[in-house]
Amino acid sequence: MSFQISEEAGRFVAKDEDGLEVGEVTFTRNGDKVLVINHTGVDPAYRGHGIAGELVRHVAEKAKNEGLKIDPVCTYAKKELETDPKYSGILKN
């Protein structure tokens, strides 16, 4: 299964090869240095293909590239970010 991820205002969105939106991760800024991940969701028909993890990874890359920390309010993002050691440096303390 192929999908494209792009950034829009306050979110990253995943679309399938037909351009149908199949998932999103939303975030807001808390001050100048923190991105708060509010929600991660994938259409049930597309679950199990790693889309949610890729969406969270894109937010993590954005934070890293912009020198920001992440506060994962969304339970899925929190689990992803807290269990993978490669994200330890970007989590808000």
Results as ranks from 00 to 15, higher is better:
Ser2Leu: 10
Ser2Asn: 15
Ser2His: 14
Ser2Lys: 13
Ser2Cys: 12
Phe3Asp: 14
Gln4Tyr: 07
Ile5Asn: 08
Ser6Thr: 15
Glu7Ile: 07
Glu7Asn: 15
Glu8Phe: 13
Glu8Ile: 07
Glu8Cys: 04
Glu8Asp: 12
Ala9Glu: 15
Arg11Leu: 11
Arg11His: 09
Phe12Arg: 02
Lys15Thr: 02
Lys15Ile: 00
Lys15Cys: 01
Glu17Lys: 06
Gly19Asp: 14
Gly19Gln: 09
Leu20Tyr: 12
Val22Phe: 11
Gly23Val: 00
Gly23Pro: 05
Gly23Cys: 02
Glu24Ser: 02
Glu24Pro: 05
Phe27Lys: 00
Thr28Arg: 07
Thr28Trp: 07
Arg29Thr: 08
Asp32Glu: 11
Asp32Leu: 07
Asp32Met: 05
Val34Leu: 07
Leu35Gly: 07
Leu35Trp: 03
Leu35Met: 07
His39Asn: 05
Gly41Asp: 03
Gly41Glu: 10
Gly41Asn: 03
Val42Ile: 02
Asp43Cys: 08
Asp43Glu: 15
Asp43Pro: 14
Pro44Val: 01
Pro44Ile: 00
Ala45Thr: 06
Ala45Leu: 06
Tyr46Gln: 00
Ala52Lys: 00
Ala52Pro: 11
Gly53Tyr: 07
Gly53Trp: 09
Glu54Cys: 08
Leu55Trp: 03
Leu55Phe: 08
Val56Asp: 15
Val56Phe: 13
Val56His: 11
Arg57His: 15
Arg57Asn: 13
Arg57Trp: 11
Arg57Gly: 06
Arg57Ser: 04
His58Gly: 06
His58Glu: 15
Val59Asn: 06
Ala60Lys: 03
Ala60Asp: 10
Ala60Tyr: 06
Ala63Met: 09
Lys64Ser: 12
Asn65Cys: 08
Glu66Tyr: 09
Glu66Ala: 12
Leu68Arg: 04
Leu68Tyr: 14
Lys69Asn: 09
Lys69Thr: 10
Lys69Tyr: 15
Ile70Thr: 09
Ile70Ser: 13
Pro72Ser: 05
Val73Ser: 02
Val73Thr: 10
Cys74Gly: 02
Cys74Trp: 04
Thr75Arg: 05
Thr75Asp: 12
Ala77Thr: 00
Lys78Gly: 05
Lys78Val: 02
Lys79Gly: 02
Glu80Val: 01
Glu80Ala: 06
Leu81Asp: 09
Glu82Lys: 03
Glu82Gln: 01
Thr83Tyr: 05
Pro85Gln: 13
Pro85Val: 09
Lys86Glu: 14
Lys86Pro: 11
Lys86Asp: 15
Tyr87Ile: 00
Tyr87Pro: 10
Ser88Trp: 07
Ile90Ser: 05
Leu91Val: 08
Leu91Gln: 13
Lys92Glu: 15
Lys92Ser: 11
Asn93Arg: 14
Asn93Cys: 12
Asn93Lys: 12
